[in-house]
Design a protein around this nucleic acid. Sequence first.
DNA 1: CCGTATCCTAATCGATACTG
DNA 2: CAGTATCGATTAGGATACGG
Lengths: 128, 128
Amino acid sequence: MVTKQLKGSAKDEADVTRADSLAREIFSDIANKWALLIIEAVGDSTLRFTELRNEIEGISHKMLTQNLRLLERNGLVERTVHPTVPPRVEYALTEPGRALRATVGGMCDWTHRYLGAIETARERFDSA
Amino acid sequence: MVTKQLKGSAKDEADVTRADSLAREIFSDIANKWALLIIEAVGDSTLRFTELRNEIEGISHKMLTQNLRLLERNGLVERTVHPTVPPRVEYALTEPGRALRATVGGMCDWTHRYLGAIETARERFDSA
DNA sequence: CCGTATCCTAATCGATACTG
DNA sequence: CAGTATCGATTAGGATACGG
């Protein structure tokens, strides 16, 4: 259960408690706008920093590096530096990254599928 | 493409541009830790405010109401007020909400599935 | 080209108190 | 019980500048 974590620490449950806490931590790392958009943007490609920046509308230099580091740390993204000058740095999804990408793709599909329904819901809500 | 939005407004592309911008807006609403955890927590149940609060470890009163409003506004969650005293307010997923829940469930499964791999990746990363 | 660091503003969040 | 409002404190995030 990702919705639960850190609970009391009866010695027998110490491990599952730790796992829950870790699960939540990972979930919190991943479940944010920029991280998910990056995963979606990389997809099956191998992209350079600047290419990613152009691919993801509105992301700042800082947010991109920050989230790429985060994804790299959690092993979702692999970073390859080509020691040329000027440097060439490429990003690609790892196996875990591609696995997550499947569900992120689902979220994107969902967004488009329900776009109209959501717009209507918003209008109803806002006029109340 | 959820990764793109607001682009230039050549009159022919005005509609798709608007749709992209809306898609991104919705995606940003939804792709946050608390919103996703709430969706996961509600699931197929009908839960009261306090039940939800207990279900989601670490969420504050404020974050819960705030995100419930957000989900309600976007038509993912249905709010039912029973005019008793004390009041009884129940939350359940709508059809769009349940559809999204499927993919959120996928994210949670993913988290548990790759827990070990991620922990290892982190250790490697942190010792560098 | 890519990354880090700094500064500064805006947004987030928790705690608390108050209403129906 | 559920919701709103307010207030500090923390953090996120953009802009900029500089180094490899």
